[in-house]
């Protein structure tokens, strides 16, 4: 078991390295750099920049150096000093800007995951046990419907519905009076009042996928001979269902955590922009538009790292729940 964990950890290192390179490369992909964007802005405002100033700024930001040197400086800063560089646009260290937002991103993703699992498993079980019943067809129809609707559309519709029909304030994770307040019981209640809508919006797509997976897994397991064996022991049908086929059908579901998590996180970015949540989503979008490379790069890197950690956790959970993986 320890060897398995160690192996998984070692495998994560090259992945992390590759992810950091890709994150850095992606933010360099659009033509030009931050200064080009800046100049375009100034030009739009009627100002003009002398070539000398531009060159000086380019040197100051290190943008005149070859790409691998820039990458090395960036990554060395992160590893050696925990320094993610500075945001050009906001003129502040990246670290200062992202931690609180990253926290909300993580919290939102975790809540969504819990929601998705808690709802998907029972529906999947029902759908499989009553295969081809009205309930099954209904769940199947809804699942395909929500799989097909894009996140942002769902966010917009949900916001419209909530404000037009129920007159509730939507958008954000807090009411204005609590937005910048310190944590208190009142703020927590306010948070709970706001957070459920984005959780549902982000989760629905993955939820639908998980329902389908749970249903398929369970249908596979239900016809296995060990189910008959357990039945021949005199076990009641419900206990039998929970103890054997459901228990085994959960294993493949755990491994889906590896791709549900990225889906949730990228869904969260889009939904957060639409619903203006104080998470990393809107910040990332702005950084990308402004070609604020250190800010954007660090956000992409951190989100990817979270995903890799999530995958790692799912691997370990799977090993914990499935002796076939643990012992072979």
């Amino acid at each position: 078991m320890l060897r398995y964990i160690a192996k998984r950890l070692v495998f994560a290192i090259p992945t992390l390295f590759a992810v950091s390179i890709i994150a850095f490369a992606i933010i360099q992909l659009p033509p030009g750099d931050y200064l080009t964007t800046l100049m375009a802005d100034w030009a739009a405002q009627g100002g003009a920049v002398e070539a000398g100033t531009l060159a000086a700024m380019r040197e100051r930001y290190g943008l005149d150096q070859p790409m691998y040197v820039q990458y090395y400086k960036w990554i060395a800063g992160i590893i050696l000093h925990g320094d993610f560089g500075i945001s050009f646009e906001l003129g502040k260290p990246v670290t200062e800007l992202i931690w609180s937002r990253l926290g909300f991103s993580l919290l939102l993703s975790l809540l969504t995951l819990c929601f998705v699992w808690a709802v998907a498993i029972p529906i999947g079980i029902l759908s499989a046990v009553r295969q081809y019943s009205i309930q099954d067809y209904f769940a199947t129809f809804l699942a395909f419907f929500f799989l097909a609707v894009p996140d942002f559309l769902m966010a917009l519709s949900a916001m419209y519905l909530m404000s037009a029909w129920f007159g509730q304030s939507v958008g954000g994770l807090f009411s204005p009076e609590y937005a910048d307040a310190a944590w208190s019981f009142g703020r927590l209640v306010d948070f709970a009042k706001h957070v459920w809508l984005p959780v549902i919006v982000i989760g629905l797509g993955s939820l639908a996928a998980l329902v389908r997976i749970m249903r398929a897994n369970l249908l596979d397991e239900l016809s296995k001979p060990y189910v008959t064996t357990a039945r021949a022991k005199g076990m009641s049908e419900f206990e039998l269902l929970m103890r054997y086929p459901v228990r085994l059908a959960l294993n493949p579901l755990i491994s889906t955590l590896g791709w549900i998590l990225p889906a949730v996180i990228s869904g969260e970015i889009i939904v957060s922009v639409v619903m203006s949540l104080p998470t990393t989503g809107p910040l990332l979008l702005r950084a990308l538009l402004a070609q604020d490379m250190y800010l954007a790069g660090s956000l992409i890197l951190l989100i990817s790292v979270l995903t890799i950690i999530g995958t790692l956790i799912s691997d370990l959970l799977l090993a914990l729940t499935d002796p076939r993986i643990r012992l072979q």
Partner: peptide
């Protein structure tokens, strides 16, 4: 029902052909 369940395994027990798949791999 409960009545047949009381017979299963207690009065009449059964063993199956494929001992690999007839037993749960995770218990």
């Amino acid at each position: 029902g409960k009545q047949i369940r009381e017979v299963r395994g207690r009065e009449i027990a059964m063993i199956f052909q494929e001992p690999m798949s007839s037993l749960s791999p995770v218990h």
